[in-house]
Design a protein around this nucleic acid. Structure first.
Lengths: 255, 255
DNA sequence: ATATGTTTGTGAAATAGTTTACAAGGTTGG
DNA sequence: CCAACCTTGTAAACTATTTCACAAACATAT
């Protein structure tokens, strides 16, 4: 059929690739060894052609008349996403969220190897966090000179985020997972992904209809905003030091 | 100029609205009282026409020749997103992530009022979590009959997520923030948003180039960003009980 | 009050992403 | 080997979203 479509891959495709990987792992654990795109659609809700198209950016993976070999596809997708090898990760912000992340086994399971944690709070520096010791964020460049991690997780309050991002970039980090609700300014070789649950909550909130849903299944939706509420707004207020649980935002792509 | 464009609003627009809101709050604190779309672009990297178009779905907000009144715009966006009033929220999953969320002041600051926490672990039920007591998830329907929360946060392991989502829906929840890495099946009146940092990490990982970035003292300035949203999952292995830190996915909304 | 400059809101054009539709490869059973 | 049947990979059609580009609104200065 065809060959490596090395054109630029849409971000949504990459996101779905991660979904497929997850799904394939589950399938393998259920001892399924072959699956068709139609079956993927049935089980995940993702359109079969979408699935095939997504894969087509990277080559050919299936056999006409048969489908896809589950474990082979799994391996190949893991390789595409580079999650088939350990990736070193550093984290800045040893607050609620940072701590939860350090203790989360899923990171290691997914080959993201957390090799250092930083904060700027002198009450925290030097203390242990799970199996790591909290370092002074001021030392991130020196420390990462040896570690050479390229992925950084930013879990600090908004008001510190840009400053810390600058330090990360200086330290050789070129992929940042940002939990702070702001759009980071970084050099063009650095990739940023934002994780934002406050934003997601706002989107959900928008979709709430005026009426309380009767408990039990209905179907309909609709009913718009009846318009007389007051005019409060989102408060702000920064938590004090580095490191607190935070949400975020999304940023536009660019070139 | 024009009037209320009550057509369907693109999800990316809603996501950006949350960004704008955040940005406007920061501006107000800096005592800026008027801003033009060009200035928004300069400061956030979001295209000026995009900003204007996003707002145009909801009416007219600016004055030609002048720009937008910061605090007025802030209030109006908050109202659009319904974050100008308290929204009750329940959380299921009192693990690492759940605990971090309960303790996160940003929720209350943004008017998301966490009114109940649930888990299925008998070791946890009845114990306090910050200011709330952990309830048995089996009682969610009864308890929510009184509370009438409509937003639910799902912070349980993947293997429990669908089951818990079903309970939430039965309990009258019609907006779910899902942290588990799978695509939930829910009735069409229920909205789901997925939050997935393992997925985001995978996207970052994909973009890592073969070479280690030289630790530069470079300065460059360009803007940066990436899109957000949409589906997927990652690898996984199940932690044992309900409630563990988890990542996730995103699903397309629908009407 | 007219000219000059600024900035909005929005059609229309351009881009990006998804879905349809189908030729071609591959399988199965007689 | 052939016929009937699947299923892939992808070109083309379609849908969604972003960006351009400009008329209309408003401000300011003279």
């Amino acid at each position: 059929m065809a060959h490596i479509n090395s054109a630029k891959v849409p971000i949504p495709t990459l996101e779905r690739l991660a979904t497929y990987l997850r799904f394939l792992i589950d399938l393998e654990q259920s001892n399924v060894d072959t699956i068709s795109s139609a079956e993927v659609e049935k089980q995940t809700g993702i359109n079969a052609a979408q699935f095939r198209k997504d894969l087509s950016y990277f080559g050919e993976f299936g056999k006409p008349g048969v489908g896809y070999n589950v474990s082979d596809l799994q391996n190949r997708i893991a390789r595409i996403l580079k999650v088939d090898v350990d990736q070193k990760v550093v984290l800045v912000g040893a607050g609620n969220l940072g701590s939860a992340l350090v203790g989360y086994p899923g990171l290691k399971e997914h080959r993201f190897n957390l090799v250092a944690v930083f904060d700027n709070n002198y009450g925290k520096i030097g203390k242990p966090l799970w199996n790591l010791e909290i370092n002074d964020v001021a030392a991130i460049k020196d420390i990462n000179q040896k570690l050479r991690a390229r992925i950084g997780i930013l879990a600090v309050p908004t008001n510190a985020a840009q400053r810390v991002a600058d330090l990360m970039v200086e330290a050789g980090i070129d992929a940042i997972l940002n939990f702070a609700p702001l759009l980071l300014r970084v050099p063009s070789h650095v990739f940023v992904r934002n994780v934002s649950f406050l934003q997601e909550l706002a989107v959900l909130s928008y979709h709430l209809t005026g009426e309380t849903t009767p408990i039990e299944n209905g179907t309909s939706v609709s009913v718009k905003n009846n318009g007389n509420s007051d005019m409060s707004l989102l408060q702000n207020r920064e938590p004090s030091p580095l490191s607190e649980l935070h949400s975020s935002i999304s940023q536009n792509l660019n070139g």
